Amino acid sequence: MLYGIGKDTMSLEVNEKEMLDILKKNPRAILQGKTSDEKVMPVVVQNIQRETMSGKLLHIDFHHVNMTESMDSKVTIHFSGEAIGVKSGGVLQVEMYEVEVRCMPGDLPSSMEVDISGLAAGAQLLVSDLIFKDGIEVLTDPNTVMIQIKTVHAEIEETA
């Protein structure tokens, strides 16, 4: 189904294989939907229903995107590198993999890669540490911890 402000709700059909390929690459991509009268309009996937056992697509809700107005969406964060704190015995703890942003649809990044190799034991990466290009407003609380490198305290047994 296709929904949108000021738009009539429409039923759509999609090629399941093509849709699955798109969802693997970028689940928040702005797609070009074509209506039965050959009109093309930008849409995003709003909701997906899958068969529980097989994962087969049952229903997808699309939402019309107005390319001239800012939109709220989420951006997936990919962490790269091995933190020096992990190399020295710390434990990497990921708290969240995505942040909510507001921007023009054409500026929405599909994902963001963050190098964590400089994080020492006891360090953390906050949402405020992420650097997005101009025009992207981060809506997630800037003080939210994304990653922390926990130090491991070994218990020492005293010998009697």
Score class of each variant (00 low, 15 high):
Ile77Thr: 12
Val43Thr: 01
Met53Arg: 06
His63Ile: 14
Ser36Val: 10
Glu51Asn: 07
Ile60Phe: 03
Met112Gly: 10
Tyr97Leu: 11
Gly33Lys: 12
Asp37Gly: 04
Met104Gln: 14
Met67Lys: 06
Leu92Ser: 09
Lys56Tyr: 02
Val86His: 05
Gly81Met: 12
His64Phe: 15
Phe62Val: 06
Val101Asp: 05
Val43Leu: 10
Ser70Arg: 14
Met41Lys: 12
Met112Phe: 12
Val43Asn: 07
Thr52Asp: 13
Val40Leu: 11
Arg50Asn: 03
Ile48Phe: 07
Cys103His: 00
Leu92Gln: 12
Ala83His: 00
Ser54Pro: 05
Ser111Leu: 12
Val86Ala: 01
Lys56Asp: 11
Asp37Tyr: 08
Val99Glu: 02
Pro42Thr: 05
Arg102Lys: 12
Ser110Tyr: 11
Met53Val: 10
Ser73Asp: 13
Gly33Phe: 04
Ser36Gly: 11
Ser88Asp: 08
Gln49Gly: 11
Asn66Arg: 07
Thr68Gly: 04
Pro105Tyr: 13
Gly81Ala: 06
Pro109Gly: 03
Ile77Pro: 04
Pro105Lys: 03
Phe62Gln: 09
Asn47Met: 04
Gln49His: 13
Glu98Met: 00
Leu31Pro: 06
Lys34Tyr: 06
Met96Asn: 15
Asn66Ala: 12
Ser80Ala: 06
Leu31Lys: 11
Met71Val: 08
Val40Asp: 02
Met112Asn: 09
Val101Gly: 07
Tyr97Thr: 15
Leu108Trp: 10
Val40Cys: 09
His63Tyr: 12
His78Met: 06
Glu82His: 09
Ser110Gly: 11
Leu92Lys: 14
Val94Leu: 11
Gln93Glu: 09
Val91Gly: 03
Gln49Cys: 04
Leu58Ala: 00
Met53Thr: 00
Phe79Tyr: 13
Ser88Gly: 07
Lys87Pro: 00
Met112Glu: 14
Asp107Lys: 13
